[in-house]
Design a protein around this nucleic acid. Structure first.
Lengths: 226, 226
DNA sequence: TAAGCGAAGATAGTAATACTATCCCTAATT
DNA sequence: AATTAGGGATAGTATTACTATCTTCGCTTA
Protein backbone atom coordinates (compact mmCIF):
# COMPACT_ATOMS: atom_id res chain seq x y z
CA UNK A 1 0.00 0.00 0.00
CA UNK A 2 2.88 2.38 0.67
CA UNK A 3 4.16 4.74 -2.00
CA UNK A 4 0.63 5.60 -3.09
CA UNK A 5 0.03 9.12 -4.37
CA UNK A 6 2.48 11.99 -4.16
CA UNK A 7 5.30 12.22 -1.66
CA UNK A 8 6.90 15.50 -0.66
CA UNK A 9 10.48 16.11 0.32
CA UNK A 10 10.34 17.19 3.94
CA UNK A 11 13.59 17.98 5.77
CA UNK A 12 14.95 14.57 6.73
CA UNK A 13 16.18 15.72 10.14
CA UNK A 14 12.64 16.36 11.30
CA UNK A 15 12.03 12.63 11.55
CA UNK A 16 14.12 9.61 12.39
CA UNK A 17 12.54 7.63 9.60
CA UNK A 18 10.39 8.87 6.70
CA UNK A 19 6.78 8.17 7.74
CA UNK A 20 5.64 8.42 4.13
CA UNK A 21 7.55 5.22 3.29
CA UNK A 22 5.82 2.70 5.58
CA UNK A 23 2.24 1.78 6.22
CA UNK A 24 2.85 2.28 9.92
CA UNK A 25 4.23 5.77 9.27
CA UNK A 26 1.27 6.70 7.10
CA UNK A 27 -1.14 5.58 9.79
CA UNK A 28 0.87 7.61 12.27
CA UNK A 29 0.58 10.74 10.10
CA UNK A 30 -3.08 10.25 9.40
CA UNK A 31 -3.97 9.78 13.04
CA UNK A 32 -1.75 12.57 14.30
CA UNK A 33 -3.56 15.10 12.10
CA UNK A 34 -6.91 14.06 13.50
CA UNK A 35 -5.56 14.05 17.04
CA UNK A 36 -3.92 17.48 16.77
CA UNK A 37 -7.26 18.74 15.51
CA UNK A 38 -9.26 17.13 18.31
CA UNK A 39 -6.93 17.83 21.23
CA UNK A 40 -4.86 20.82 20.22
CA UNK A 41 -1.06 20.80 20.42
CA UNK A 42 -0.85 21.10 24.23
CA UNK A 43 -3.08 18.13 25.08
CA UNK A 44 -1.70 15.97 22.27
CA UNK A 45 0.68 13.25 23.49
CA UNK A 46 2.48 10.35 21.84
CA UNK A 47 0.76 8.06 24.31
CA UNK A 48 -2.67 9.08 23.03
CA UNK A 49 -1.45 8.86 19.44
CA UNK A 50 -0.14 5.34 20.10
CA UNK A 51 -3.48 4.29 21.53
CA UNK A 52 -5.34 5.74 18.55
CA UNK A 53 -3.29 3.66 16.10
CA UNK A 54 -3.28 0.65 18.44
CA UNK A 55 0.45 0.79 18.89
CA UNK A 56 2.95 1.83 21.61
CA UNK A 57 4.52 5.06 22.63
CA UNK A 58 8.01 3.70 22.02
CA UNK A 59 7.15 2.85 18.43
CA UNK A 60 6.10 6.44 17.70
CA UNK A 61 9.43 7.60 19.08
CA UNK A 62 11.12 5.54 16.39
CA UNK A 63 9.72 8.01 13.83
CA UNK A 64 9.71 11.36 15.65
CA UNK A 65 11.82 12.65 18.53
CA UNK A 66 8.95 14.66 19.99
CA UNK A 67 5.61 16.21 19.15
CA UNK A 68 7.19 19.53 18.21
CA UNK A 69 9.10 17.89 15.39
CA UNK A 70 6.01 16.01 14.30
CA UNK A 71 4.05 19.25 14.06
CA UNK A 72 6.94 20.87 12.21
CA UNK A 73 7.04 17.94 9.82
CA UNK A 74 3.32 18.30 9.09
CA UNK A 75 3.71 22.05 8.68
CA UNK A 76 6.51 21.56 6.18
CA UNK A 77 4.47 19.01 4.32
CA UNK A 78 1.66 21.56 4.14
CA UNK A 79 3.88 24.30 2.74
CA UNK A 80 5.39 21.90 0.22
CA UNK A 81 1.91 20.97 -0.82
CA UNK A 82 0.78 24.60 -1.26
CA UNK A 83 3.98 25.25 -3.20
CA UNK A 84 3.21 22.31 -5.45
CA UNK A 85 -0.35 23.50 -6.04
CA UNK A 86 0.80 27.00 -6.91
CA UNK A 87 3.37 25.67 -9.36
CA UNK A 88 0.77 23.45 -10.96
CA UNK A 89 -1.77 26.21 -11.35
CA UNK A 90 0.35 29.12 -12.54
CA UNK A 91 2.14 27.00 -15.11
CA UNK A 92 1.34 28.29 -18.60
CA UNK A 93 -0.08 31.55 -17.24
CA UNK A 94 1.74 34.60 -18.55
CA UNK A 95 -0.15 37.59 -17.17
CA UNK A 96 1.49 38.45 -13.82
CA UNK A 97 -1.69 39.83 -12.31
CA UNK A 98 -3.62 36.71 -13.25
CA UNK A 99 -0.80 34.67 -11.75
CA UNK A 100 -1.03 36.56 -8.46
CA UNK A 101 -4.77 36.06 -8.27
CA UNK A 102 -4.25 32.33 -8.66
CA UNK A 103 -1.59 32.41 -5.95
CA UNK A 104 -4.01 34.13 -3.59
CA UNK A 105 -6.69 31.62 -4.43
CA UNK A 106 -4.33 28.79 -3.57
CA UNK A 107 -3.13 30.34 -0.32
CA UNK A 108 -6.70 30.60 0.90
CA UNK A 109 -8.30 27.55 -0.65
CA UNK A 110 -5.54 24.96 -0.86
CA UNK A 111 -7.51 22.54 1.26
CA UNK A 112 -10.46 22.45 -1.13
CA UNK A 113 -8.36 20.94 -3.91
CA UNK A 114 -8.86 17.30 -4.69
CA UNK A 115 -6.92 15.15 -2.25
CA UNK A 116 -3.47 13.93 -3.21
CA UNK A 117 -2.86 11.21 -0.65
CA UNK A 118 -4.93 8.68 1.24
CA UNK A 119 -3.13 9.16 4.50
CA UNK A 120 -3.20 12.95 4.75
CA UNK A 121 -6.56 14.64 5.06
CA UNK A 122 -5.69 18.07 3.68
CA UNK A 123 -8.85 19.64 5.01
CA UNK A 124 -8.16 18.72 8.60
CA UNK A 125 -4.47 19.43 8.19
CA UNK A 126 -5.43 22.94 7.08
CA UNK A 127 -7.42 23.40 10.29
CA UNK A 128 -4.42 22.20 12.29
CA UNK A 129 -2.12 24.60 10.43
CA UNK A 130 -4.46 27.50 11.14
CA UNK A 131 -4.63 26.73 14.85
CA UNK A 132 -1.22 25.31 15.63
CA UNK A 133 1.40 26.18 13.01
CA UNK A 134 2.42 29.39 14.74
CA UNK A 135 3.65 27.23 17.64
CA UNK A 136 5.98 25.45 15.26
CA UNK A 137 8.12 28.54 14.80
CA UNK A 138 7.52 30.60 17.94
CA UNK A 139 10.03 28.56 19.87
CA UNK A 140 12.99 29.37 22.01
CA UNK A 141 15.64 27.71 19.87
CA UNK A 142 14.32 29.14 16.63
CA UNK A 143 17.79 30.15 15.44
CA UNK A 144 19.19 26.63 15.84
CA UNK A 145 16.25 25.08 14.08
CA UNK A 146 16.40 27.64 11.31
CA UNK A 147 20.06 26.82 10.82
CA UNK A 148 19.08 23.16 10.46
CA UNK A 149 16.71 24.11 7.65
CA UNK A 150 13.49 23.31 9.46
CA UNK A 151 11.73 26.32 7.93
CA UNK A 152 13.08 26.16 4.42
CA UNK A 153 9.77 25.04 2.87
CA UNK A 154 8.05 28.14 4.17
CA UNK A 155 10.89 30.42 3.16
CA UNK A 156 10.90 29.05 -0.38
CA UNK A 157 7.16 29.44 -0.64
CA UNK A 158 7.26 33.04 0.57
CA UNK A 159 10.08 33.74 -1.86
CA UNK A 160 8.04 32.33 -4.72
CA UNK A 161 5.06 34.54 -3.90
CA UNK A 162 7.32 37.56 -3.43
CA UNK A 163 8.66 36.98 -6.92
CA UNK A 164 5.16 36.94 -8.35
CA UNK A 165 4.39 40.15 -6.47
CA UNK A 166 7.48 41.76 -7.92
CA UNK A 167 6.52 40.67 -11.42
CA UNK A 168 3.20 42.49 -11.00
CA UNK A 169 4.77 45.60 -9.53
CA UNK A 170 8.57 45.65 -9.84
CA UNK A 171 8.90 48.82 -7.80
CA UNK A 172 6.89 47.65 -4.80
CA UNK A 173 9.42 47.84 -1.95
CA UNK A 174 7.98 45.24 0.43
CA UNK A 175 7.36 42.15 -1.64
CA UNK A 176 8.60 39.63 0.92
CA UNK A 177 6.83 41.34 3.79
CA UNK A 178 3.62 41.33 1.75
CA UNK A 179 4.10 37.69 0.81
CA UNK A 180 4.65 36.47 4.37
CA UNK A 181 1.84 38.70 5.62
CA UNK A 182 -0.57 37.20 3.12
CA UNK A 183 0.08 33.73 4.49
CA UNK A 184 -0.10 34.87 8.10
CA UNK A 185 -3.23 36.94 7.47
CA UNK A 186 -4.99 34.13 5.68
CA UNK A 187 -4.57 31.83 8.66
CA UNK A 188 -5.22 34.48 11.26
CA UNK A 189 -8.34 35.93 9.73
CA UNK A 190 -9.89 32.49 9.32
CA UNK A 191 -9.13 31.82 12.98
CA UNK A 192 -10.57 35.18 14.00
CA UNK A 193 -13.67 34.73 11.87
CA UNK A 194 -14.40 31.50 13.69
CA UNK A 195 -13.36 32.36 17.23
CA UNK A 196 -12.90 36.10 17.70
CA UNK A 197 -15.19 37.61 15.08
CA UNK A 198 -14.85 41.14 16.46
CA UNK A 199 -11.30 41.13 15.13
CA UNK A 200 -12.28 40.79 11.49
CA UNK A 201 -14.82 41.92 8.92
CA UNK A 202 -15.08 38.64 7.11
CA UNK A 203 -17.04 35.55 7.95
CA UNK A 204 -16.43 31.98 6.84
CA UNK A 205 -19.35 29.76 5.98
CA UNK A 206 -18.86 26.01 5.87
CA UNK A 207 -15.12 26.23 5.29
CA UNK A 208 -15.80 28.55 2.34
CA UNK A 209 -13.33 31.38 2.32
CA UNK A 210 -14.80 33.47 -0.46
CA UNK A 211 -14.92 36.68 1.56
CA UNK A 212 -11.35 36.25 2.71
CA UNK A 213 -10.11 35.68 -0.82
CA UNK A 214 -11.98 38.77 -1.96
CA UNK A 215 -10.49 40.83 0.85
CA UNK A 216 -6.94 39.67 0.18
CA UNK A 217 -7.41 40.35 -3.53
CA UNK A 218 -8.75 43.81 -2.85
CA UNK A 219 -5.90 44.59 -0.49
CA UNK A 220 -3.13 43.19 -2.66
CA UNK A 221 -4.31 44.84 -5.84
CA UNK A 222 -4.74 48.20 -4.14
CA UNK A 223 -1.23 47.97 -2.70
CA UNK A 224 0.35 47.08 -6.03
CA UNK A 225 -1.52 49.58 -8.19
CA UNK A 226 0.71 52.36 -9.48
CA UNK B 1 5.93 50.43 48.04
CA UNK B 2 2.83 48.97 46.43
CA UNK B 3 0.39 51.12 44.49
CA UNK B 4 3.24 52.94 42.81
CA UNK B 5 2.66 54.13 39.24
CA UNK B 6 -0.25 53.24 37.05
CA UNK B 7 -2.38 50.14 37.48
CA UNK B 8 -4.44 48.65 34.65
CA UNK B 9 -7.71 46.84 34.89
CA UNK B 10 -7.01 43.29 33.76
CA UNK B 11 -9.82 40.73 33.75
CA UNK B 12 -10.09 39.64 37.37
CA UNK B 13 -10.72 35.98 36.52
CA UNK B 14 -7.25 35.66 35.04
CA UNK B 15 -5.75 35.71 38.50
CA UNK B 16 -6.82 34.53 41.93
CA UNK B 17 -5.52 37.70 43.53
CA UNK B 18 -4.45 40.95 41.85
CA UNK B 19 -0.65 40.80 41.66
CA UNK B 20 -0.46 44.56 41.20
CA UNK B 21 -1.70 45.08 44.76
CA UNK B 22 1.04 43.38 46.77
CA UNK B 23 4.79 43.60 46.80
CA UNK B 24 4.97 39.83 46.40
CA UNK B 25 2.68 40.02 43.38
CA UNK B 26 4.76 42.75 41.78
CA UNK B 27 7.94 40.74 42.27
CA UNK B 28 6.12 37.77 40.74
CA UNK B 29 5.16 39.82 37.66
CA UNK B 30 8.57 41.35 37.28
CA UNK B 31 10.36 38.03 37.48
CA UNK B 32 7.90 36.20 35.28
CA UNK B 33 8.52 38.63 32.43
CA UNK B 34 12.25 38.08 32.63
CA UNK B 35 11.79 34.33 32.90
CA UNK B 36 9.39 34.08 29.96
CA UNK B 37 11.96 36.01 27.97
CA UNK B 38 14.87 33.81 29.03
CA UNK B 39 13.19 30.41 28.86
CA UNK B 40 10.28 30.81 26.46
CA UNK B 41 6.76 29.72 27.36
CA UNK B 42 7.39 25.98 27.07
CA UNK B 43 10.38 25.79 29.42
CA UNK B 44 8.92 28.28 31.89
CA UNK B 45 7.59 26.64 35.08
CA UNK B 46 6.18 27.97 38.33
CA UNK B 47 8.93 26.06 40.13
CA UNK B 48 11.62 28.05 38.33
CA UNK B 49 9.69 31.27 38.90
CA UNK B 50 9.43 30.49 42.60
CA UNK B 51 13.16 29.90 42.81
CA UNK B 52 13.88 33.15 41.00
CA UNK B 53 11.88 35.17 43.53
CA UNK B 54 13.11 33.02 46.43
CA UNK B 55 9.66 31.72 47.20
CA UNK B 56 7.70 28.48 46.77
CA UNK B 57 5.71 27.00 43.97
CA UNK B 58 2.58 26.85 46.14
CA UNK B 59 2.74 30.59 46.77
CA UNK B 60 2.74 31.35 43.05
CA UNK B 61 -0.37 29.20 42.70
CA UNK B 62 -2.13 31.53 45.12
CA UNK B 63 -1.96 34.21 42.41
CA UNK B 64 -2.31 32.30 39.15
CA UNK B 65 -3.91 28.96 38.36
CA UNK B 66 -1.34 28.12 35.70
CA UNK B 67 1.24 29.64 33.40
CA UNK B 68 -1.24 30.05 30.57
CA UNK B 69 -3.32 32.43 32.67
CA UNK B 70 -0.21 34.27 33.77
CA UNK B 71 0.82 34.81 30.15
CA UNK B 72 -2.71 35.87 29.30
CA UNK B 73 -2.68 38.30 32.20
CA UNK B 74 0.58 39.84 30.98
CA UNK B 75 -0.77 39.99 27.43
CA UNK B 76 -3.88 41.80 28.60
CA UNK B 77 -1.77 44.21 30.62
CA UNK B 78 0.23 44.90 27.47
CA UNK B 79 -2.83 45.65 25.36
CA UNK B 80 -4.29 47.83 28.09
CA UNK B 81 -1.02 49.71 28.16
CA UNK B 82 -0.90 50.23 24.39
CA UNK B 83 -4.53 51.35 24.55
CA UNK B 84 -3.64 53.86 27.25
CA UNK B 85 -0.69 55.19 25.26
CA UNK B 86 -2.80 55.62 22.14
CA UNK B 87 -5.48 57.47 24.08
CA UNK B 88 -2.90 59.70 25.64
CA UNK B 89 -1.22 60.56 22.36
CA UNK B 90 -4.18 61.10 20.05
CA UNK B 91 -6.00 63.29 22.56
CA UNK B 92 -6.33 66.82 21.16
CA UNK B 93 -5.45 65.67 17.65
CA UNK B 94 -8.18 66.39 15.14
CA UNK B 95 -6.77 65.39 11.77
CA UNK B 96 -7.72 61.69 11.28
CA UNK B 97 -4.70 60.90 9.16
CA UNK B 98 -2.37 62.40 11.74
CA UNK B 99 -4.20 60.36 14.38
CA UNK B 100 -3.66 57.16 12.44
CA UNK B 101 0.04 57.84 12.04
CA UNK B 102 0.31 58.26 15.81
CA UNK B 103 -1.57 55.01 16.31
CA UNK B 104 0.85 53.19 14.04
CA UNK B 105 3.78 54.73 15.86
CA UNK B 106 2.40 53.46 19.15
CA UNK B 107 1.67 49.97 17.88
CA UNK B 108 5.26 49.58 16.77
CA UNK B 109 7.13 51.59 19.39
CA UNK B 110 5.06 51.27 22.56
CA UNK B 111 7.98 49.77 24.41
CA UNK B 112 10.24 52.76 23.84
CA UNK B 113 7.96 55.05 25.84
CA UNK B 114 9.12 56.08 29.27
CA UNK B 115 8.33 53.33 31.77
CA UNK B 116 5.13 53.54 33.78
CA UNK B 117 5.78 51.03 36.55
CA UNK B 118 8.78 49.79 38.46
CA UNK B 119 7.73 46.18 38.39
CA UNK B 120 6.97 45.80 34.69
CA UNK B 121 9.81 46.19 32.24
CA UNK B 122 7.88 47.20 29.16
CA UNK B 123 10.79 46.55 26.86
CA UNK B 124 11.21 42.94 27.86
CA UNK B 125 7.45 42.46 28.05
CA UNK B 126 7.29 43.61 24.44
CA UNK B 127 9.81 40.94 23.48
CA UNK B 128 7.72 38.35 25.31
CA UNK B 129 4.57 39.52 23.55
CA UNK B 130 6.27 39.25 20.17
CA UNK B 131 7.47 35.73 20.83
CA UNK B 132 4.75 34.23 23.00
CA UNK B 133 1.48 36.15 22.80
CA UNK B 134 0.18 34.10 19.91
CA UNK B 135 0.18 31.08 22.26
CA UNK B 136 -2.17 32.93 24.58
CA UNK B 137 -5.02 32.75 22.07
CA UNK B 138 -4.18 29.75 19.89
CA UNK B 139 -5.63 27.39 22.43
CA UNK B 140 -8.11 24.58 22.32
CA UNK B 141 -10.73 26.12 24.58
CA UNK B 142 -10.56 29.53 22.92
CA UNK B 143 -14.35 29.84 22.78
CA UNK B 144 -14.79 29.29 26.52
CA UNK B 145 -12.05 31.74 27.35
CA UNK B 146 -13.43 34.28 24.94
CA UNK B 147 -16.82 33.96 26.62
CA UNK B 148 -15.12 34.70 29.94
CA UNK B 149 -13.77 37.93 28.50
CA UNK B 150 -10.11 36.95 28.50
CA UNK B 151 -9.51 38.70 25.18
CA UNK B 152 -11.56 41.83 25.69
CA UNK B 153 -8.54 44.13 26.01
CA UNK B 154 -7.33 43.13 22.59
CA UNK B 155 -10.77 43.36 21.05
CA UNK B 156 -11.29 46.86 22.42
CA UNK B 157 -7.91 47.96 21.17
CA UNK B 158 -8.54 46.60 17.69
CA UNK B 159 -11.95 48.29 17.70
CA UNK B 160 -10.35 51.59 18.63
CA UNK B 161 -7.86 51.38 15.77
CA UNK B 162 -10.59 50.28 13.36
CA UNK B 163 -12.54 53.40 14.28
CA UNK B 164 -9.56 55.61 13.52
CA UNK B 165 -9.13 53.80 10.19
CA UNK B 166 -12.78 54.44 9.38
CA UNK B 167 -12.43 58.10 10.27
CA UNK B 168 -9.61 58.39 7.71
CA UNK B 169 -11.46 56.46 5.03
CA UNK B 170 -15.14 55.88 5.89
CA UNK B 171 -15.71 53.68 2.85
CA UNK B 172 -12.84 51.29 3.48
CA UNK B 173 -14.60 47.94 3.84
CA UNK B 174 -12.09 46.05 5.99
CA UNK B 175 -11.27 48.35 8.89
CA UNK B 176 -11.26 45.68 11.59
CA UNK B 177 -9.32 43.24 9.47
CA UNK B 178 -6.76 45.95 8.77
CA UNK B 179 -6.58 46.91 12.42
CA UNK B 180 -6.00 43.37 13.70
CA UNK B 181 -3.57 42.71 10.85
CA UNK B 182 -1.53 45.76 11.77
CA UNK B 183 -1.03 44.41 15.27
CA UNK B 184 -0.27 40.91 14.08
CA UNK B 185 2.06 42.14 11.34
CA UNK B 186 3.96 44.41 13.68
CA UNK B 187 4.78 41.50 15.99
CA UNK B 188 5.40 39.03 13.21
CA UNK B 189 7.65 41.17 11.10
CA UNK B 190 9.82 42.07 14.08
CA UNK B 191 10.11 38.37 14.86
CA UNK B 192 10.92 37.56 11.25
CA UNK B 193 13.46 40.37 11.00
CA UNK B 194 15.31 38.92 13.93
CA UNK B 195 14.97 35.20 13.30
CA UNK B 196 13.78 34.47 9.76
CA UNK B 197 14.98 37.48 7.79
CA UNK B 198 14.18 35.93 4.43
CA UNK B 199 10.50 36.38 5.29
CA UNK B 200 10.65 40.17 5.43
CA UNK B 201 12.21 43.20 3.77
CA UNK B 202 12.78 45.17 6.92
CA UNK B 203 15.55 44.93 9.46
CA UNK B 204 15.52 46.02 13.09
CA UNK B 205 18.60 47.61 14.57
CA UNK B 206 18.96 47.78 18.34
CA UNK B 207 15.25 47.48 19.00
CA UNK B 208 14.66 50.40 16.63
CA UNK B 209 11.68 49.71 14.46
CA UNK B 210 11.93 52.68 12.11
CA UNK B 211 11.78 50.60 8.94
CA UNK B 212 8.78 48.67 10.19
CA UNK B 213 6.90 51.85 11.08
CA UNK B 214 7.69 53.26 7.66
CA UNK B 215 6.48 50.10 5.96
CA UNK B 216 3.23 49.97 7.93
CA UNK B 217 2.63 53.66 7.22
CA UNK B 218 3.28 53.18 3.52
CA UNK B 219 0.96 50.19 3.39
CA UNK B 220 -1.84 51.71 5.42
CA UNK B 221 -1.85 55.02 3.59
CA UNK B 222 -1.83 53.32 0.22
CA UNK B 223 -4.73 51.10 1.24
CA UNK B 224 -6.80 54.00 2.51
CA UNK B 225 -6.13 56.45 -0.35
CA UNK B 226 -9.22 57.05 -2.47
C1' DT C 1 -2.69 42.82 75.30
C1' DA C 2 -4.90 39.20 73.30
C1' DA C 3 -7.64 37.23 69.66
C1' DG C 4 -8.21 36.56 65.03
C1' DC C 5 -7.00 36.53 60.38
C1' DG C 6 -4.67 36.63 56.07
C1' DA C 7 -0.47 35.99 53.51
C1' DA C 8 3.12 33.38 52.62
C1' DG C 9 6.56 29.52 54.10
C1' DA C 10 7.46 24.69 54.34
C1' DT C 11 6.80 20.08 53.30
C1' DA C 12 4.48 16.16 50.99
C1' DG C 13 2.41 13.84 47.75
C1' DT C 14 0.13 12.52 43.14
C1' DA C 15 -1.01 11.80 38.32
C1' DA C 16 0.52 12.73 33.95
C1' DT C 17 4.13 13.80 30.68
C1' DA C 18 8.12 13.08 28.03
C1' DC C 19 11.04 10.53 27.37
C1' DT C 20 14.96 6.16 27.47
C1' DA C 21 16.28 1.36 27.70
C1' DT C 22 15.98 -3.35 26.96
C1' DC C 23 14.42 -7.54 25.52
C1' DC C 24 11.41 -10.15 22.45
C1' DC C 25 9.09 -11.64 18.26
C1' DT C 26 8.34 -11.95 13.42
C1' DA C 27 8.62 -11.46 8.57
C1' DA C 28 11.32 -10.27 4.96
C1' DT C 29 16.12 -10.20 2.90
C1' DT C 30 20.73 -12.48 1.76
C1' DA D 1 19.67 -21.13 7.51
C1' DA D 2 21.19 -16.82 9.37
C1' DT D 3 20.62 -11.97 9.72
C1' DT D 4 18.38 -7.97 10.59
C1' DA D 5 15.00 -4.31 10.54
C1' DG D 6 10.54 -3.03 12.30
C1' DG D 7 7.68 -2.94 15.68
C1' DG D 8 5.62 -5.07 20.37
C1' DA D 9 5.89 -5.27 25.21
C1' DT D 10 7.37 -3.88 29.54
C1' DA D 11 9.79 -1.06 32.78
C1' DG D 12 11.65 2.79 34.62
C1' DT D 13 13.05 7.89 35.38
C1' DA D 14 13.03 12.89 35.80
C1' DT D 15 10.14 16.59 35.38
C1' DT D 16 5.83 18.94 35.28
C1' DA D 17 1.68 20.58 36.99
C1' DC D 18 -0.62 20.65 40.19
C1' DT D 19 -3.23 19.87 45.38
C1' DA D 20 -3.22 19.56 50.35
C1' DT D 21 -2.04 20.58 54.83
C1' DC D 22 0.13 22.50 58.58
C1' DT D 23 2.92 26.34 60.46
C1' DT D 24 4.49 30.94 61.22
C1' DC D 25 4.63 35.76 61.01
C1' DG D 26 2.75 40.27 61.14
C1' DC D 27 -1.14 43.21 61.20
C1' DT D 28 -5.74 44.67 62.68
C1' DT D 29 -9.37 45.34 65.84
C1' DA D 30 -11.69 44.73 70.30
Amino acid sequence: MSGHGIRFRVNANLCLKDPQMTEYGQKLLSSSIHLFDELGFEKFTFKKLAISIESREASIYRYFENKHKLLLWLTNWYWEWVNYLIDLNIRNIDDPERKLKIVLHNIVNASTESPLTEYINENILHKVIIKESTKAYHIHNIDDENRLGYFSSYKELVQKVATVISSVSPKYPYSRMLASSLFEMANNQIYFAEHLPQLTDISCKKDQYIELEKALNFMTMKLLKE
